[in-house]
Amino acid sequence: MIGRYKFEIGCILVLALAFLATQAEFNRFYYFAGFAILQYVMIATAWNILGGYGGYINFGTAGFLGVGSYVAIGLIEWGDAAIVWQVVAAAVVAGLLGLFIGYFTLRLKGVYFAIATLALAIVLETIVNNWDFVGGAAGISILPPRKPELLGILIVDRKGDGIFSNSKEFLFFLMAAMAIFSVWVARTVERGKLGRGLNAIKDNEEAAECMGVPTLRLKLIATTLSGALMGAAGGIFPSYMTFVDPPTAFNLEFAVNSLAMPMIGGTFTWLGPVVGAVLLGTVQQIAIVTISSELNLLILGVLLVIFVTVAPHGIVGWFMKKNK
């Protein structure tokens, strides 16, 4: 019985751990680094639904994240929406964007699809650059509410009356919950008919179609889901950063990381992106503090080359092979 729900129990334990961490009052930097890593777990997991299961390489992660961020900013500017609504709206808009982009670009294969998605990110960044309501090219500062409430419960209060003593800790916990949720979504997809259909599409799309797999529909579901999760990961970003400008929200580093992490961890299972994101995210955070933030991409490039040549099925694939 317990064996069957091992994954769900694991999720709850990790979430509980994240909550305990928020109560422990560590150095602020650890929450910051943890938030970045958890955000990458979510982004890499979202990317893998389309890229790992379906074989469509999305280079436009930054576009979906940026849209999520700016939907949240728009809602804050427009009506001081609560963080939960920011995230939900970001997910909905980015999901619709995924559906829309999917419909127009999924006829393209391989590198052409990748180029189209990369173009999407650039087009969106240009639009936001010229949109003053959300700060335009100069960026925008966000003031997180001092005493946010959810369903009548005080969430954050500096004097200790709320659940969390500051909003960074609360957002860290929310990010953990969202990351776990997205891993659960990916795992559900992977183990279901959708995942099997996507795998067939990855292996041979025409053969899949001729074997009765509704390829276009499954791909659209995948782009929508993947886009929505990326959007949600972007939606929480402005409140956490408190200052967002287009180069941050549409940072190409998101695109590179979101595909490097699953590839290094292993694209064929939900565990791959998680392992890749935790490992690479941690290395990057350490590198930022100890060496320089510019070195990040170099480390990433070197690791990617090593893994593609030595362990093409990623870390998880390498270990599974060893155990066979």
Binding site: N199, D203, C210
Partner: peptide, 24 residues
Amino acid sequence: MPAYKRTATGITRTFQIPRPFHTM
């Protein structure tokens, strides 16, 4: 009619050069 629906009506085909789902 798209190919997958034709398969559902009862037509399937093989390919000249085999196209297995190679990761399965």
